[in-house]
């Protein structure tokens, strides 16, 4: 259960690191937990209705279309802020020097600060994970000399980051540029009780998956991607085809999703919600979503083997899996919508 007493917890003397699957839900979970609110990552993810699917051929990353399994960056932060009425304050900066000064000021006040930055310039990331993704989230809880004390929720332990690198990561330009974004709680937290919000949050997520009015979003987006896979130039340009297929899997498994493109994370949320709302039906649906997630993982494995050239380029198989997943998710979210 969550704390309901309204007296603000004093800033804890020691910072407690929390490892999470996803950076954005992880950062807000960690911020809340360090204020004494025992919320889980799955709860943060589900409450902000962050599960989605998007296949947007018009937006390209290295010639490959944008494929996402969740809502846009900052959706979780903003969603939780409004749902739980959190005093979460966002600041961006035009001048990098000002951004650094403000960060130091907040840290010296003893605050834990959330930051947005580019993965590529963060030296504590393994080299093979460093790509130009500008919307990564991390926490800074102090500074020592020219190093910042970093708690990055996707890793198992706290770490350090030299000021120069952090500065570069915070002020990269380009798609999803962070503009030095930092965020923190600027007032004591109100009493946090997610239970009354749960049904609305679940309904909203069902609508995102079922009734998005654009064909490349939600369940229809999955089917659209399936049809696109079938049209890939397997004969004419096998290299592009393999990269395309690999790209779907990267977005699903590599980019901190907790497995199966956030489906397991959402299933974990439904399980928690089942207990909080005393709705055993949600427990059953959680298992159903787990089965769908397992099918996503099967898809990922097949696709990865194809992208590596380890198995024959069977695009029909990938198409069938995606169309099947689209149908299953549509049926799933319809049942879920009725259940709440």
């Amino acid at each position: 259960m969550l704390a309901t007493d309204s007296t603000p917890a004093p800033t804890p003397p020691a910072f407690e690191h929390v490892q999470s699957a996803h950076c954005e839900s992880g950062v807000i979970t960690s911020l809340l937990r360090n204020q004494g609110v025992p919320i889980s990552e799955a709860m943060a993810f589900g409450l902000s209705s962050a599960l989605a699917f998007a296949y947007i051929p018009l937006v390209k990353i290295n010639d490959l279309p944008l494929i996402g399994y969740r809502m846009l960056p900052r959706h979780i932060l903003k969603g939780l802020k409004s749902k739980l009425r959190l005093p979460l304050r966002f600041e961006t900066f035009r001048a990098p020097a000002e951004g650094r000064r403000r960060l130091d000021e907040l840290l010296d006040q003893g605050k834990v600060v959330g930051l947005q930055g580019s993965v590529f310039f963060l030296p504590y990331f393994p080299v093979n994970m460093r790509f130009h993704f500008n919307a990564h989230n991390l926490l800074v809880y102090g500074r020592e000399g020219s190093d910042y004390l970093v708690s990055d929720p996707v890793f198992g332990n706290v770490t350090r980051c030299p000021a120069r690198d952090l500065q570069r990561a915070r002020f990269v330009r380009g798609a999803l540029a962070p503009k030095g974004l930092l965020y923190y709680f600027d007032r004591p937290l109100p009493a946090v009780d997610p239970v009354p919000m749960l049904r609305a949050a679940i309904r909203k997520n069902c609508h995102i998956m079922l009734h998005a009015f654009l064909p490349f979003l939600g369940c229809s987006g999955i089917a659209l991607l399936g049809r696109r896979v079938l049209k890939l130039p397997a004969e004419k340009d096998p290299e592009y085809t393999r990269r395309f297929v690999g790209h779907i899997v990267r977005m699903q498994e590599e980019i901190g999703t907790g497995g199966a493109g956030f489906r397991f994370l959402y299933a974990a949320f439904l399980q928690e919600a089942a207990d909080l709302l005393a709705l055993p039906e949600l427990q059953r649906l959680s298992l159903e979503l787990t089965a769908i997630g397992d099918e996503w993982r099967e898809f990922a494995l097949q696709a990865a083997r194809i992208s590596k050239g380890r198995s024959e380029m069977n695009l029909r198989l990938l198409h069938d899996l995606l169309v099947d997943l689209s149908n299953k998710e549509r049926a799933f979210f319809r049942t879920l919508l009725k259940a709440v």
């Binding site: 490892q19 999470s20 699957a21 799955a42 093979n128 994970m129 198992g156 393999r242 990269r243 690999g246 790209h247 899997v249 990267r250 498994e253 590599e254 497995g259 397991f264 299933a267 974990a268 399980q271 959680s286 993982r297 990922a300 494995l301 696709a303 990865a304 083997r305 992208s307 590596k308 380890r310």
Partner: peptide, 18 residues
């Protein structure tokens, strides 16, 4: 549901390498 520590699944490692 609980969190487990993964050293990287086959699918994930393969596509990252690629």
């Amino acid at each position: 549901y609980r969190i487990a520590q993964s050293g990287g699944s086959e699918a994930e490692v393969t596509v990252t390498e690629e």
